[in-house]
Design a protein around this nucleic acid. Structure first.
Lengths: 209, 209
DNA sequence: ACGCTAATGTCAGCCCCTGACAGTTGACAA
DNA sequence: TTGTCAACTGTCAGGGGCTGACATTAGCGT
């Protein structure tokens, strides 16, 4: 069971996270001050920095949950699937099962809105992209292990996840720029874009004349 | 011709840039203070911020030149090439002709070392990735125009450059983590990785049993 | 030579973040 | 229960990035 001290810590951290995301999604990330977050929870600014290494980390706490969820989904794919099939199924399925992981901390809607903030804040988008390649590194190792190849020597795992990740990023970007912010819209867009990769890399796009 | 005032401004900006890159590559980006850069040129800190919007921009001034160089190279590719051929040729050729653009401001060696700094500084790497997708957006429009498709409706241009960019990023990363920092090493690695994309996306990687 | 404008320096201040120190509160054993 | 110890928190001082306001300097055109 959980000691009182641990419960308090947990509550403070959750409260800080919720206050931060709430403020980020309403007034914007840059316009939100760490002091404001701390004040909303009635702790000192110093305490905020004891729970989060920086302001950015508070903005990515939810993303971190979602990313771990996705990596886990890939890990559990049946071994007979090809690498790309596994990635595709994991991400499509992941969008549906995400609420199991995320909704435990904040409403799913807030997570989606926070994602919009990340996409529309240059500095956060930058960090998001860097975090993505960290996730890709881990995925590359997972796939390499699955297929029994050497993750250090063979460039194929790294290239496969990089290409896959690139498609996902384009999809996310398009989704956040559109007007349907539903999960199902995201699912359909992902499937459609993945199907377009082949044609996009084909010889030429000009209609046969 | 150039007025005295303009010459002075140009010299100050170049001096600031050179001092910044010099310091970044020797003591590291985070360890370098804007005050130090300004002191090295004997101007006030305030003046630095009048020439560069921020510390980061000074770190990417060289990258900006190189990126523009590459986009231009794609634009000038003969129209009979397929999109991917054009991108491939432009980037391979770009590595050789880069000195024409970059070496005018700083020694090419300094540019390469600065690139190492970007790759090894998390915050700079993040910004670099975001800048990359900006470049991709522009490239997608170039390709769309080339092939006569609609850049807004047809997802193929965006997907093609995203995939291509992903491969380049993996290549750059591998190059900066290796021990041969020569241009030719970069060229060969790029060609090799581009050739591996097909196999990486193929059905499976397991050796036929 | 002189007024005008652009470039620079100085100053004050906000915000992110950190180390140091002191005060408070929960944990655990006597 | 009580007292000790460790963990958590608040306060303070300060560094570093960045900006607006204002005064000062220096190049420009007449």
């Amino acid at each position: 069971m959980e000691t009182l001290r641990e419960r308090k810590k947990r509550r403070t951290k959750d409260a800080l996270l919720r206050a931060a995301v709430e403020l980020f999604t309403t007034k914007g990330y840059e316009e939100t001050t760490v002091d404001e977050i701390a004040d909303a929870v009635e702790v000192s600014q110093r305490t905020f920095f004891r729970y989060f290494p920086g302001k950015q980390e508070a903005a990515f706490a939810l993303q971190e949950i979602a990313e771990a969820h996705f990596v886990e989904a890939v890990r559990e794919r049946p071994p007979h699937e090809t690498p790309l099939e596994a990635l595709r199924q994991a991400v499509l399925e992941g969008w549906d099962t995400m609420h199991e992981s995320v909704a435990a901390v904040v409403p799913l809607d807030l997570y989606l809105r926070m994602y919009q903030v990340i996409e529309s804040t240059p500095m956060l988008l930058a960090v998001h992209l860097r975090r993505s390649i960290d996730a890709e590194d881990e995925l590359a190792r997972v796939l390499a292990a699955r297929e029994g190849v050497d993750a250090e020597e063979d460039p194929r795992p790294r290239l496969a996840v990089a290409v896959f990740g690139a498609v996902i990023r384009v999809t996310e970007r398009r989704w956040s720029a559109g007007d349907d912010f539903s999960i199902s819209a995201m699912r359909e867009l992902t499937a459609a874009y993945l199907d377009q990769v082949g044609p996009a890399l084909m010889g030429n796009w000009r209609p046969a004349t």
